[in-house]
Design a protein around this nucleic acid. Structure first.
Lengths: 129, 129
DNA sequence: TGCGGAGCACACAAAAATGTAAGCGCAAAA
DNA sequence: TTTTGCGCTTACATTTTTGTGTGCTCCGCA
C-alpha cells in the first residue's frame, strides 16, 4: 500500500506481467492483508465504515481506510457518502465484485480441504516416528 | 518470506484468522510475488528449476528458490531430485494443487473481464470531459 | 589445473506493507 | 462548556517481502 517507487523492478515486473496475465492482475487487486476479508464481509449487504471495522478483528482505522480506498479504485466496492452529521459512509460490492463471489467461495472450500489434507499428512509422518 | 517475528500483531492476526477462514488460509499460501505464476507454469507438466526460471521474466534464483520451498512446504508442489551429475531437480504439482487449477482459471478469466470493464469506464469518464 | 553448469545458501540492502498514535471538523448531547 | 462519535488524514515506526551479489559443491571435461 502506501506509495510505490515507479522505477523499482518490482513495480516494473508487476506491470509487464499484468499486461498478459489476468491472474496476476487479479492477484494484484486482491492481494492485501484485509481485502479478501472485506469483500467477504460485504457480500450480500451494505455496511458502513464502523460496522465493517467491528467485523474485522484487529484492523486499524488506517488499514481499513487504505484498503477500502484501493478496493474502490479497483472498482470492487462502491462508496456512498450521506451528508449527515456525523457523516455516514456506506460500502457495498460492485457488480464485478459480486461475480467474484463464487470464486472466493470455492477458494474457501479448497482452503479448508487442503488444510485437512496437510494436517493428516503431518499426523501420519509423526506416526512413522 | 524469510523469517517472521512470531510476536508481531501481523503474524498473530493472520494466525487467528486462518483458524476460522479457509480463504485467508488459501490467500496466505498463494500470496507471494511469483507463487500463482509458478503454479500456472507447472500446470500439466513437470519442469526443472532452470526451465521454470526461463519462463518467468526477471525472477532471481533466490526468489525462485524461496517460493518453491514454500510451495513445497505448503504441499502444492512436489520436488524430485535426480542424483545425476550435474544434479537435476524437477517440480510438479501435487494433487491438491491440481484441484486448484479450475479456480485460478476462473480467476484469470475474471481478471481479464474486470480489466476490460475498468478500461471502458476510464474511457467513458475521459469522454465526459 | 582450471572451467563450467545446476541448484542452491548466506549476508546484506532496498522497497513495500502494515501498524501506532495523534488529531481534525462538525454538530448534537451532556 | 466540554465531551462524544464518525470517518477519515498525517507523520512516523516496525515488520515483511523482494532483490543483489557472492560463493559453494559436485563431478566431468578439456
Amino acid at each position: 500500500m502506501g506509495k510505490r517507487k515507479p522505477t523499482s523492478t518490482n513495480t516494473i515486473n508487476r506491470e509487464t506481467l499484468i499486461d498478459f496475465c489476468g491472474m496476476v492482475y487479479a492477484a494484484d487487486i486482491l492481494g492485501g492483508r484485509w481485502k479478501l476479508l472485506i469483500l467477504y464481509k460485504l457480500d450480500g449487504r451494505t455496511l458502513r465504515f464502523s460496522e465493517l471495522k467491528k467485523r474485522l478483528p484487529n484492523v486499524s482505522d488506517r488499514m481499513l481506510t487504505l484498503h477500502l480506498q484501493e478496493l474502490e479504485k479497483s472498482g470492487l466496492v462502491i462508496r456512498t457518502i450521506h451528508a449527515e452529521v456525523p457523516v455516514r459512509v456506506e460500502y457495498h460490492l460492485s457488480e464485478s465484485a459480486q461475480q467474484l463471489a463464487p470464486i472466493w467461495k470455492q477458494l474457501e472450500r479448497w482452503g479448508l480441504a487442503h488444510r485437512d489434507i496437510m494436517e493428516k499428512e503431518a499426523k501420519f509422518s509423526v506416526a512413522l516416528h
